[in-house]
Write a protein that binds this DNA or RNA. Structure first.
Lengths: 143, 143
DNA sequence: TGAAATATATCGTCTTACGACATATTAAAT
DNA sequence: ATTTAATATGTCGTAAGACGATATATTTCA
C-alpha cells in the first residue's frame, strides 16, 4: 500500500517492506522451530532452555539465575520454565553441595534425546534458510 | 559442560555451543526489539503487526486472514491482536465496501508515528548487530 | 549475633496462542 | 429461488510465558 512521507526522518515504503520482509523471514525460522519442538512435546521456550543448558559455555552447569540471564528473562520466569521442564522429565535439578542456595541444572536422558533430535533438524534447516536470511539482512542494512 | 557422545548422530559439544550462541544472538535482537516496543506502550507482537500492515507487499491493505497468514498465526489469534491494537488507537478497521466479510486494516496516525520511531531504531540496531549475527550463523552452518 | 546480600520460590495479572465452536456474508448447486 | 458450501470474522475456555511484588532460605559481612 502506497503512502506519502510525512517527515524527513520517516522510512520509505521500500524500507518498511524490507524491514517487514526480514521480520517475516525471522518468523519463518521461529515457526519452523516451534513446530519441531511441538512435535516432541516441547514449547519453543522449553526447547531454548534445553539448548541453553546443554550448550552452556562454562565448565560448571548453570543455575536458575545464570540461566535467566542468558535467556534474558527474569529469574522468576525461569523458575516457571524449569518447573514445567522438570515435571515433564526433561531436566534435573541438583542442589549444589557447597552453597545450598544454588540449584544445578542438567538434562535428563530424555532431555538429551529430545534436544539431539531438535538440534539436528535445526542445523539442517539453518543451512537451508541461512543464505536467504543473510540476503534479506544485507538488503535491509545496506539500503 | 563436557559430555560424552551417545550416538554417531549426536552433535558435538562445540556444535551445541554454536547453536546456543546463535540462539543467544537472536534473543539479543528480540530483547532489544521488545524493550523498544515496551518503551512506547507496545508488546512485541503488536509492533510486528504494525510493521506487517505498513510494510504489506501488495497494493491492497491486508485483512485479518491475510495478516494472520503472514504472521504465521491462526486467524483467531490475529483477531485478539487487532482488537487490542484498535482499542489502544494504533490501527483502524474499515469494512470493505465490496465483500462485507472483509475488514481492511490500516495504521492510525498514532500507529504510523509509533512504527516510524521503532523502525528507525531497529534499522540502526540491525546495522550494528547484523555482522555479528551473520558471523555466528556462518560459524554454525559451515562447521 | 544481627543485618545485608543472594538464590530461589510464590502470587496475581496480562498478552499471546491454540482448538472448538458460532455467526455473518457470499458463492455455488440444484 | 432456495438450500448448501465456502469464506471471513468473532467468541470462549485453557495454557504457556512474562512481569512486578513479595516471601523464604541460605550465606556473608559488620
Amino acid at each position: 500500500m502506497t503512502r506519502s512521507r510525512a517527515q524527513k526522518s520517516d522510512l520509505t515504503d521500500a524500507e518498511y517492506r524490507k524491514l517487514a520482509a526480514f521480520r517475516q523471514a525471522l518468523r519463518g525460522f521461529v515457526a519452523f522451530s516451534a513446530a519441531e519442538a511441538a512435535a516432541i512435546g516441547l514449547t519453543p521456550r522449553q526447547h531454548q532452555v534445553l539448548l541453553a543448558i546443554r550448550g552452556w559455555p562454562d565448565s560448571m552447569p548453570p543455575n536458575i539465575k545464570s540461566l535467566a540471564e542468558r535467556m534474558m528473562i527474569r529469574h522468576n520466569s525461569a523458575v516457571g520454565l524449569i518447573q514445567r521442564l522438570e515435571a515433564a522429565g526433561f531436566i534435573q535439578r541438583i542442589e549444589s553441595s557447597g552453597d545450598r542456595r544454588f540449584i544445578q541444572l542438567s538434562l535428563t536422558p530424555k532431555g538429551e534425546a529430545a534436544l539431539a533430535a531438535l538440534s539436528a533438524s535445526h542445523l539442517t534447516e539453518l543451512r537451508q534458510r541461512g543464505p536467504r536470511l543473510v540476503e534479506m539482512l544485507q538488503a535491509l542494512i545496506s539500503g
